[in-house]
Write a protein that binds this DNA or RNA. Structure first.
Lengths: 334, 334
DNA sequence: CTGTTAGCGCATTCAT
DNA sequence: ATGAATGCGCTAACAG
């Protein structure tokens, strides 16, 4: 039924080894025999079996990527960066959604390892001791992507979330705002949550602005939670003149909530966020945001992984990509 | 170095076959021996090698999915549906972006087949004779996902794009509009382009409205092309009172273009589209759209594929999922 | 219920 | 430059 390397060998009148050589582009084959083999391959419709090859060579040319949620545009963008570079280096990717759930993350890491991936790209929530444990059961290189562990034991590529948040809030402060609210993600989330919250606090503190607990709401990254948070802020006796949102989507919710309360953005309340997803420029007013280079984070982390897999020298195991503030229309003076 | 089934067998004092049985949950193992084996596995830190298993059993429990672009939110949503169901049936997915480019599509299909995937989910542009040819070189089941071939030779799940477009335009007509423009995708794209355009024309025709070529612009599915198209329509001597966009993103571009021209949506011009992505409810006015059940398309196609892979009986090889119109704020009377 | 024996399709020594 | 032989780690008959 299935045609194997053996069939090709017989058809071409050579040995299996020779067929294997031409299929793998080994230069040690006389052009004439190479030609014969190619013809036999063509005639028989031979297709190499990558599974057999993987077993024999112990390399599968596939990498595992665990991602929180591919339907989230931010991560989808990262995934595209990953796949483009993977493709460039002839790797395929097995994609697993793990929703930042620790159990699921560890489970998929294990099945990925069972599948003998040559490398692992991990995008998740907090990296716990159990994660490290799971990574340590294997020799395959792992790189954290848009994720980092505080101990910095694992190679990673990400932006500096604390600084990104800091920069966003600074922009508000520079515009004269003194009463600045924040719509945060859960503080359990190291990057999108905790770090951005820390950046917010530091910016306030360094500028002599007092931290007011009632000016912080925790959202779930979704549009609706942005409007809920904003409703709360607007109902305050002394409402903020600006709000910093941990993500675009919540920021957009906030903007619409402000508008629905017959207030103006940025006239009455300024809004800034970090992400800069495609949506940022697709709302009115267009959203001012600190841009995370999601595609690049994916691409760079995959590139790093290829080096690790080939045991090439890498000079930097923890790479922090630059972020930048994209001024649009949602921030004005106090 | 790596611990194999053989090591476990020795450690547990049983044969390889028995270890294989417990690992595969074969009921024909005495509980006591099963326990012994589990303990040995634990002690040795044994992890099954899925590649070896794949070679021996000729099943890899992985399916290939070729997708146009994972960073497009519409497809990302489908992908999530696919992965959720795949996961439920213990399959993993290898994801390949092919950008609706025929060459790339055929190339990735072949590498996926080399990797011995148990099934293939194909999401692409037009399904050509060459595609069919590629599919035919193998026994692994293929299902087209959000894609269909005119000959209906391959199982598929999708919505009826022609009808979806028809319904959208009908809604406009029922609201009294007579001068209705369309922002279409390229007519080379069978589903998003050609079929939707046909639906538009049929709706006009069935209602005695003449088709006017100057009322149709071809976009590239992006926001910017929506604003370009709309600019053109607004500059017309007799501008349309409503526009039907083939996708949400172009529709949003159109809305903003209208607003920037000091016109109102839907006061001056109504806008409707098909897609109903998350963005539809995140713009003002909120976009009225025909909803494609993207997640379901992914989930159902994966479910269908599992049946095909298990050679189970399937009663319907071509499934057309229902679409529905979601009334929001962008459509008003003529 | 358990063990023995063959391969699965290929890469990779080691010879020649 | 080419061939013969071995084994990668596991499943799947087949026996018993």
């Amino acid at each position: 039924m299935t045609v194997t390397i053996y069939d090709v060998a017989r058809e071409a009148g050579v040995s299996m080894a020779t067929v294997s050589r031409v299929v793998n582009n080994n230069p040690n084959v006389k052009p004439a025999t190479r030609k014969k083999v190619y013809e036999a391959i063509e005639r028989l419709g031979y297709r190499p079996n990558a599974v057999a090859r993987g077993l024999a060579s112990k390399r599968t040319t596939t990498v595992g990527v665990v991602i929180p949620d591919i339907s989230n545009s931010i991560f989808a963008e990262v995934a595209r960066g990953i796949e483009d570079i993977a493709n460039m280096y002839h790797y395929n990717i097995i994609l697993c959604n793990a929703d930042k759930k620790k159990d699921k993350e560890i489970r998929v890491v294990n099945t990925l390892l069972e599948k003998q991936v040559d490398g692992l790209l991990f995008m998740g929530g907090a990296v716990t001791e159990d994660h490290l444990q799971a990574f340590k059961t294997t020799n395959v290189p792992v790189v954290l992507c848009a994720t980092s562990d505080e101990n910095e034991q694992i190679p990673s590529v990400d932006i500096n979330h604390e600084e990104a948040a800091y920069d966003a809030v600074m922009k508000l402060i520079q515009n004269g705002h003194k009463r600045i609210a924040m719509i945060s993600g859960t503080l359990q989330d190291p990057a999108n949550g905790y770090a951005r919250f820390q950046g917010y606090k530091r910016a306030l503190q360094e500028n002599g602005l007092s931290y007011d607990e009632s000016l912080v709401r925790i959202g779930n990254y979704r549009y609706e939670s942005g409007v809920e948070a904003m409703k709360y802020f607007i109902a305050l006796d002394e409402r903020p003149t600006a709000v910093f949102s941990a993500t675009d989507e919540m920021a957009i919710g906030a903007i619409h909530c402000i508008q629905d309360s017959d207030l103006q953005v940025p006239g009455d309340i300024s809004v800034i966020s970090v992400d800069n997803s495609r949506m940022a420029s697709m709302v009115r007013p267009q959203l001012t945001a600190v841009a995370q280079p999601m595609y690049d984070i994916g691409a760079v982390s995959m590139r790093l992984l290829t080096k690790l897999m080939k045991k090439e020298h890498v000079e930097q195991y923890k790479v922090t990509l630059p972020h930048e503030i994209v001024m649009r229309q949602s921030v004005g003076g106090a």
